[in-house]
Amino acid sequence: MTGRRMGRRSNVMVSATAALALALAVGLAACGSSSSSSSSSSTSSSTAAGGSSSTPGAGKPPITLGDKNFAEENILGALYAQALEAKGFKVTLKDNVGSSEIIYKALSTGRIDMYPEYTGVLLSAVAEQKTNPTSAEAAAQEAKTFLEKHGSTLLDTTPFYDSDALATLPSFATKNNLKSIADLKPLGKKAMLGGAPEFATRQEGVLGLKSEYGVDLTFKPIAIELAYKALESGQVDVQDVFTTDAQLLGGKFKVLEDPKHVFGFQNVAPVVKQSVLAAEGPAFAETLNKVSALLTIQAIQQMNKAVSIDKQSAATVAKQFLAANGLG
């Protein structure tokens, strides 16, 4: 199971529980909701001023869009919410609803109408499926099948995927002629592999590397926030990272290919209640799909960087992205 996308930070420190919080509490949010709803309403007015888009969403029932408790989900939530608002749909954005289990519960109990989800996480954490899909398309299809049995569905997936990945310094890769994870095999125990402590015990981790690639390096636990520092300082030779990490921009690190897909498929797609989809009309799904199609790995890395490193707000970052791509 990859726990990460269920709430990346929760491994580091918090609580998916943190989130547990909002999931069910959204209705009471005298305090919590004001910031997010104000930010979304401000964007809708500004986009209305832009005036280029028609408003097929006008008069449709209002919906509530949730997202999970880490930066990338906040960005995705803001992107989908603002794109819908630009088309005249009435959207309330609930940030930080919680981990996958919790946000899915919020969806099935009707507290939210949709949320962005990683396909692999949906399968492992929500559907509790034990077998791994063989391709990104299969993952999306299996997730969709599961959801449709339970009154929801999955819209189009993003081109980007946010899974675990192994990164090295380019110099180390050149020296050892590394392209794919399989190339690590000859290094054996001499090489140090860093990762969060639970990486050692996961199939999408040390166990899978051994069984699928025969790669058996010396494992060193490294806190997630120190991952890149550990690589740079030479504490480790290879490090578990995430494909969408902002640090991967600019070529300071090399990501090794994973041809056997040990790390699974983690593309994102909006999970939406079928009843909502029907009530909102075709423009609703169309709008969301247009947004998803834009989300390449470079795009999400840049936006992650703007939020996690430059500390800009997810709402602002999303607004600029949509505006630049004619969806704002």
């Binding site: 834009l294 470079q298 703007a306 490193i309 430059d310 600029q320 992205f321 791509n325 004619g326």
Partner: peptide, 26 residues
């Protein structure tokens, strides 16, 4: 104007770094 084949052409990624503060980045 947004073109329909936008996705195929790849998204336009705004230059976020222009707005970042060096104090924050470091």
């Amino acid at each position: 104007m947004a073109s329909v084949s936008l996705a195929a052409a790849g998204p336009v990624i705004p230059d976020y770094s222009a707005q970042s503060s060096s104090c924050v980045v470091h």
